[in-house]
């Protein structure tokens, strides 16, 4: 199904709409407006060469998450954020704090996956190994539609477990 290619401006407009709605639900309209605005500014000024949706959407999420962290957790308005020259969203820098946070997040994720049922763990492993759904269906002796259902349930359970780990 061929869909017309979106222009860069159309992509930015749609990304802004999605970010605004996504963060409005989480933090309220005023802060969401700030987050969406600041994200678009950074995306347009710092990452103007990034034009592919595959990169733009995850990048916009990273920027929005960072803006949210600064605005909500540090209580500073969005316009006062100082973006480092070589800032990368959730960068894997040598900063010990970053490394520690990253390591903790990985441990939480491993523990949550471990807490899932055997079927979910097997499904997760096969996906990590790069198998497609049709291949997984053959390996696990189940119809593809059932694999989709299992995948959805496993992701939902994983999210719940990670939520518990985050609160702990």
């Amino acid at each position: 199904m061929a869909t017309p290619e979106l222009s860069y401006e159309e992509k930015l407009k749609l990304i802004r709409e999605r970010i605004l709605a996504h963060w409005t639900y989480k933090v309220g309209k005023d802060i969401a407006e700030d987050i969406a605005q600041e994200t678009l500014v950074v995306l347009f000024t710092k990452y103007n060469k990034v034009r592919d949706l595959q990169d733009m959407i995850p990048l916009s999420y990273g920027i929005a998450a960072n803006v949210h962290f600064t605005v909500v957790r540090k209580g500073r308005p969005a316009r006062e954020i100082d973006w480092p020259e070589n800032w990368e969203p959730l960068a894997q820098g040598p900063n010990p704090e970053t490394l520690l946070v990253k390591k903790q997040a990985q441990t939480n994720l491993t523990d949550a996956i471990d807490a899932l049922g055997r079927r979910c763990r097997e499904l997760f492993l096969l996906k990590l190994q790069g198998y497609g759904y049709a291949e997984i269906a053959t390996i696990m002796d189940a119809p593809v539609a059932r694999i989709y259902v299992w995948d959805f349930r496993c992701r939902r359970d994983l999210k719940t477990l990670l939520g518990k780990a985050g609160r702990a």
């Binding site: 999605r18 709605a21 996504h22 995850p58 999420y61 959730l90 990253k102 990590l128 992701r155």
Partner: peptide, 16 residues
């Protein structure tokens, strides 16, 4: 979009 963004932190970790 919301569902994808909810999964984004996990995706980032698995990208390592």
């Amino acid at each position: 979009y919301d569902e994808l963004m909810d999964q984004e932190p996990i995706r980032r970790q698995l990208n390592d």
